[in-house]
Amino acid sequence: MQFSFIPTDVISKVISNVDFSNKHYQLALSLVVINPTIWNVVARLEYKHRIFSKITGSPKRACYGLAITIFTLGLIRDYYFKLGGCLEQNHNVGFLGSFWVKALGGLCFAAGQTLVLSSMYALGITGTYLGDYFGLLKEERLTGFPFNTCEHPMYDGSSLSFLGVSLFYGSPAGILGSAFVKLVYSIAQQFEGPFTSMIYAKRDEQRRAKK
């Protein structure tokens, strides 16, 4: 994708104001990668071997355990992203300190949270936290809002939220980190989407076989 509408000197200045040696920033970006890796590995192990259902005594308890883990790791990631990416590295670069950029940041954050919260409301706890892998499947595919606006509203909403906070604080490190979040989540979608589709296709095939 080309970004020719952004002057190269602005891009260079933004990147030059990022302190990659900042420990909080490094931890935040590490957690951006670690978190989806953990929940995908755990969920696939559960789907194939039912390890955590056996340990906890039920698929629902195992899923709730994963939900608590994901939520906690997310809070830690968000804390260090804000601390290391926005508060410690909020060097305003030209237009990043303007009112309009702050306003855009607020809009991005509001849109992102709308996608995230509406997704969670529609899916419920088990639907949000990979309950499909634990055998806790929805009766049918959700097609209403926000799923009629984008294919992965949770991931897209999270990415927008990171960008919104970064723009609000005028942080080059945060904006660069937000692009990294989007990249990592795009990769995660390539693994989760087809696997989830396979789970439901297998369920539908079993249903047809019983008729």
Rank of each mutant, 00 (worst) to 15 (best):
F52P: 02
I125Q: 11
C86A: 06
I34W: 12
H152W: 03
A201T: 09
R203Y: 10
M198D: 15
F162W: 09
G97K: 09
L104K: 01
Q89P: 00
D156S: 12
A173W: 01
F191N: 09
G112F: 02
G127A: 01
S53F: 00
S58G: 05
V116W: 06
R203Q: 15
E88G: 03
S21W: 06
A111W: 07
G94E: 15
S158H: 07
A111Y: 08
Y25Q: 02
I68L: 13
G174Y: 02
I175D: 07
S12M: 06
D156R: 06
V181L: 06
N90S: 15
A62Y: 07
G94W: 05
A122I: 01
L87V: 07
L163G: 01
T72W: 03
A179L: 14
K202P: 01
S21R: 08
K102A: 13
I6S: 07
Q113M: 15
P172A: 08
N40W: 02
Y129A: 12
E192Q: 11
V10I: 14
L142R: 05
I76N: 06
S186F: 05
H91P: 00
K102E: 09
G94A: 09
I15F: 05
F71S: 13
P153L: 11
A122N: 12
Q113T: 13
D19E: 11
G193N: 11
Y47K: 13
S197K: 15
I68D: 07
K102W: 00
